[in-house]
């Protein structure tokens, strides 16, 4: 078991957005999170990543936890591609960054400053960070934004490899990835309803 959510409720800015989310994710599986803008996809991923506590419910993760890839790639404009990736590899205790660069077709760009990368190339570098993070559960927020068709294919190849090695992924996306291992979940079903009096914001309402 890679991830288990038990009756999770999450809030954004003090306002509940999702409630009663229960799901499990096994090794080798991917789960696509669907839902319109504002449905709470990002909030849910941030909650699972441990950046914010759930309002209620239980999250079970393996001890080594998850690697989170947000909208922002966490790149430094004045560092080169290799320096950016090397930094995260050191933080996560990974060794060689060569395979990660190669997997995302970044090897030819390794000495280029991140500020001179196109949006898609930056995204690829952000995704390459997942490979050096060595976490079995990936939490991906719109991973394919600004990627061209070839890059999406590259990403799917990397993702499949990750799943085949016993990893798992939770992916918020709007496009169809066409993954065999993937199931889908629509957050619309868990939209938080207007709470009963006294149900949130302390005992104020």
């Amino acid at each position: 078991m890679m991830l288990e959510l038990v009756d999770i409720s999450v809030a954004r800015g003090g306002v509940p957005v999702l409630e009663g989310v229960t799901l499990t994710l096994g090794a080798g599986r991917a789960l696509i999170i669907r839902g319109p803008n504002g449905a709470g996809k990002t909030t849910m991923l941030r909650t699972i990543a441990g950046l914010q506590p759930p309002v209620s419910g239980r999250i079970v993760l393996p001890p080594e936890g998850a690697a989170y890839a947000a909208h922002a790639d966490g790149l430094k404009a004045t560092l080169t591609v290799a320096e950016n990736l090397r930094f995260w590899a050191d933080i996560f205790g990974a060794g060689d960054i060569g395979p990660a660069l190669a997997a995302m077709a970044l090897a030819p760009l390794r000495d280029r400053m991140a500020q001179n990368l196109s949006a898609g190339q930056k995204r690829r570098l952000g995704l390459a960070r997942l490979l050096v993070a060595q976490r079995r559960l990936w939490l991906l927020d719109e991973p394919t934004v600004s990627l061209d068709a070839a890059s999406v294919a590259l990403f799917l190849q990397v993702l499949s490899g990750h799943l085949q090695q016993g990893g798992a992924a939770l992916i918020a996306t709007h496009i169809s990835l066409g993954l065999r291992e993937a199931e889908e979940i629509d957050l619309g079903a868990f939209r938080a309803t207007a709470p009963r009096a006294g149900a949130f914001d302390g005992a104020f309402a």
Binding site: R46, A49, G50, L51, G65, A66, A67, Y68, A70, H71, A72, D73, G74, L75, K76, W88, I91, F92, G93, R129
Partner: peptide, 15 residues
């Protein structure tokens, strides 16, 4: 680091 998302990633990093 907050603007470019690094702080989120550092907060979820093993250190």
């Amino acid at each position: 680091d907050h603007e470019d998302g690094s702080l989120d990633l550092l907060a979820t990093a093993p250190i």
